[in-house]
Structure formats: C-alpha cells, structure tokens
C-alpha cells in the first residue's frame, strides 16, 4: 500500500506560541543554537489502489477542505517513497 504524507504548518505570519515555548525550553536542556521553532502536523495516509494523479487530486482536496484550515495554515502533499532496503 502506498503512503501519502500531508504536512500542515501554520502560515509564516501566524504567531505560534507552542513552537516558541519549545524553542525557549531548548537552551535549558542543553540544546543551543536553535533560533526558531515552528510546530506543525503530519498526516500519513495509507492509500488503497494506485497513487495516480486522480488520487493525489482527491487528497489535495481533502487537505484543503479538512486536514488544513487554509485561513491560517499551509499544506504540502507528497508521496512517501518506500526505502530501498526494508519493509
């Protein structure tokens, strides 16, 4: 079964206090040098049947109407290629 990944991120101009809280905690934990953190969501979709153009178009539609709120979020859709050696 093919996997399609939808990543959803807050738009750059939208304040992300959760990302900021993570970023502020880093030096305390000894992780230096991280100037900014933005937190998002990742959806892994196991697709039945071929991941062709039509399937990707439907997933795009799904992301636009449901997985992301395009008033505040951007999203990307990509096919997750299986690793060479494995699974």
């Amino acid at each position: 079964m093919a996997r399609v990944v939808v990543d959803v991120m807050l738009k750059p101009e939208i304040l992300d206090p959760q990302g900021q809280a993570v970023q502020r905690a880093l030096p305390r934990l000894g992780f230096e040098g991280i100037a900014d953190v933005r937190q998002g969501k990742r959806f892994e979709l196991e697709v039945e049947g071929p991941v062709d153009e039509a399937a990707l178009a439907r997933i795009h539609e799904m992301a636009e109407t449901f997985l992301a709120n395009t008033v505040i979020e951007d999203f990307t859709v990509r096919v997750d290629e299986p690793a060479e050696a494995g699974s």
Binding site: L10, L15, P17, Q18, N69, I72
Partner: peptide, 10 residues
C-alpha cells in the same frame, strides 16, 4: 471569517 488559535500564553 478568520480562525481561532491557541491562546498566546498557552
């Protein structure tokens, strides 16, 4: 219009 997000102080 618009959207609601997490409070700025969490």
């Amino acid at each position: 219009p618009g959207a609601m997000l997490r409070n700025n102080h969490l």
